[in-house]
Amino acid sequence: MKTMLTIKNLKAKIETSEGDKQILKGINLTVNPGETHAIMGPNGSGKSTLASVLTGREGYDVTEGEVIYDGKDLLELDPEERAREGIFLAFQYPIEIPGVSNVNFLKTAINEIRKSKGQEPMSSVEFLKMMKEKAKLVNIDPEMLSRYVNVGFSGGEKKRNEIFQLAMLEPKLSILDETDSGLDIDALKIVAGGVNKLKSKNNAFIVITHYQRLLNYIVPDFVHVMYDGKIVRSGGKELALELEENGYDFINELKVNAEV
């Protein structure tokens, strides 16, 4: 099986008003097609920074290491090129774009991706048909799609819209950044149900979450615990349950050991 993503000793910093701050301090991770990886960890451990660096958000400076995606040096690509190569980020805080309708936004995105692959633009009929189908997946009212991107959407609607976009763009590697935050249990089930229907042997998911709750519905193959810019523990899905029971206490032990 061909590896999809290899992260080797990835270190990254951000510029702050108090000088540079090292956030990622040597991440190693391998993701294969068909796999779902959960990344857990306390606040400030660098989970969202990892998502940002993988998708090319500005303001992060990679100081060491490499990321190979589909045989390519991912860090050399612009955000839009990464998206066209099949990387998708479901945002923790989806952005509102007044004046741009969901339909127009997605149609532009899909056709840009198709263009990059030398394909013809999708016909309007085909596009509308696809939109209807995918909207059902996450229980989105088609009326919402004619509205401006995320404007006037509730927190839950915004998250569902992220998964809807994921469904429309059919990425190879999806990164869900705290998609569960701010969702009630019903909304969480809808979102997780959508993701499960989209899983296949050809795509992969990285699910970033603070809580174990989401992982009851999106069952991971691997669970990684991040702390202070590193993956400090990896295991199977049972690791999430262990964390649920014992919390991140073991990290304190790690800290003590490090100090000794």
Partner: peptide, 17 residues
């Protein structure tokens, strides 16, 4: 960034906004 992360290039993203 949000728009680009969906595969839309810099100029088209600006134009859209």
């Amino acid at each position: 960034f949000y728009i680009k992360s969906r595969g839309i290039g810099d100029k088209d993203a600006k134009s859209l906004l």
